[in-house]
Design a protein around this nucleic acid. Structure first.
Lengths: 217, 217
DNA sequence: CACTAAAACGGAGGCGCCTCCGTTTATTTA
DNA sequence: TAAATAAACGGAGGCGCCTCCGTTTTAGTG
C-alpha cells in the first residue's frame, strides 16, 4: 500500500467500543495480564510504533503482528480496532516525551536540556503529523485523550523552561507559553521533504534567541 | 458487514484527489460521457443510494457494482474512492429534496406542501444520519459541499414557509429559521428504532402549531 | 456501411481486514 | 510435581478493497 489510493473510510459508530483508557500498559490497574500476554502486548506496541512512524496509520496490521512474532488473532485480542492500537502508541509517545524531559533535566545544564528536548519534540510532532487525520478523529471522539496528552506535554515543557530561566541560562522574560508559541511554526509548516532540517534550524534559532541576554553566561 | 466491528480508518491525505465538484451528472459541464458510460454511471448512483440508505456507508462496493450490472472496475473508474460516490449520492439527495419542494408547492395548498415536504425532509435526515461520520469528514474536508447543500436546502424551506405564510394557511409570525429550529429536535434525537414515527409525529405537531391562529382557515 | 481510434468495460488477482475456534501455555490447586 | 482450568495463542478462511490490463463497445470518418 505504498503511495496510491488516498482513502478515507469510516464506520457508523465511533461512539461505542471506544478505546476508553486502556491502561494495562505498565500500571496494572486491572487484572495483571498473564506473563506471555504482557510480553506480546508490549512487543506489539513497540513494533506498531515503528510501523506507524514509517508507513503512517495504514500500516498493515498483519505485518505488525508478524514482525512482533505473534498471530493476527493475538493482535486483535489486545487491540480490537486499529484505533485502540493507535491510541496506545500515541499515549506511549507522549509518555516517552515527558519522561525524556526529566532525564534531560538531570543530565544537562538547563538550557541544553531544553534544547535537546525541543529537538525530541520535533520528532514527536513528526509522528503526530503522520497520524494526523486519524488522530484528529480520535481526539475529537475521545476528549480525555486530548486533555490528558496536551496537559502532560505542556507541563513537561513548562518545567524545562522555568528551570532554564531560573538558572539564568536563558532570559527570564519569557515563559513556556511563549516558547510553545514560537514552536507553533513547526506544527503548521508545510510537509516538505526538508521539513525535518528546517525544524531543527528553527529550534537552534529559537535557542539563540532565548540565550541572548541571559543573566548567567 | 452487518453489525460488528465499528472501525474508523483514515488515510493520510484527504486533501489531494478531492471529489472537487464532479458534476457530470446531468449538466454536461465537461465532455459529455459516452452513452453507455452515462447509463452505467446513473445506474451506479441509483443503486448506491439504496445501498447506503439500507446498509450505511460501508455497503459493499462490489455488491453495488453487481446490482448495478457492471464490473467493479467500472465503478472505480467513475468513482475513484468511496467518498466520491458518497458525495455524489449525497448531492443527488439534496437535489431531489429541493426539487420536491417546487413540485409539492405546485400540486398542493401551501400548508400541505410544507407538511409533505417536511415529511420528506425527515427521510433525508434519516439517510444523512446513516452517513453521519463519513459525511462529517467529507463536509469538513470539502467546504464547498457544505455551503452548497446547506444553502440549497434552507433556500427550499424558506420558499415553502414564506408561501404558506403569505397564503395565510399558517401563522405569519414565524419564518423559515424558526421552523428549521423546531425541526432541530429531529436531527439530534437519539437513534432509537422508533425514530421515524417519532419524527413523523413531531412534524404533525409542528404543523398544528403553525396552523393555529392562521389568518385563512 | 466498414473501419478505426478512443473510450469504456469487467473481472481476475493480490492484499488486508477481522472472526472463529481448535490448540497451546501459564497459573492454580492438590 | 502432576492435574485441572482458565487464559492466551495463532492462523485458516471468508470477504471486501482496489489495480491492472486484455476485451468490447461506441462514435466518428471515408
Amino acid at each position: 500500500m505504498g503511495s496510491s489510493p488516498h482513502i478515507a473510510r469510516v464506520e457508523k459508530k465511533l461512539s461505542d467500543q471506544q478505546p476508553e483508557t486502556a491502561e494495562k500498559q505498565e500500571a496494572p490497574a486491572q487484572k495483571p495480564l498473564r506473563a506471555d500476554a504482557q510480553r506480546n502486548r508490549d512487543k506489539l506496541v513497540e513494533v506498531a510504533a515503528q510501523a506507524f512512524a514509517a508507513d503512517g496509520v495504514d500500516a498493515s496490521l498483519e505485518e505488525i503482528a508478524k514482525r512482533a512474532g505473534v498471530g493476527i488473532g493475538t493482535l486483535y485480542r489486545h487491540f480490537p480496532t486499529r484505533e485502540h492500537l493507535v491510541e496506545v502508541v500515541y499515549r506511549r509517545e507522549v509518555e516517552g516525551l515527558c519522561l525524556a524531559a526529566d532525564e534531560l533535566a538531570q543530565l544537562h545544564p538547563a538550557d541544553v536540556a531544553l534544547e535537546l528536548w525541543m529537538q525530541r519534540f520535533v520528532d514527536y510532532i513528526a509522528t503526530k503529523r503522520g497520524l494526523a487525520t486519524s488522530l484528529r478523529l480520535l481526539l475529537s471522539a475521545n476528549s480525555t485523550l486530548f486533555s490528558d496528552t496536551s496537559g502532560r506535554v505542556s507541563g513537561a515543557m513548562r518545567a524545562l523552561v522555568e528551570a532554564a530561566a531560573a538558572s539564568g541560562k536563558i532570559r527570564a522574560d519569557v515563559d513556556a507559553s511563549d516558547v510553545m508559541h514560537a514552536l507553533g511554526g513547526i506544527y503548521s509548516a508545510p510537509n516538505t521533504p526538508d521539513w525535518r532540517e528546517r525544524s531543527g534550524r528553527l529550534v537552534k534559532l529559537l535557542m539563540d534567541g532565548l540565550r541572548f541576554g541571559a543573566r548567567n553566561q
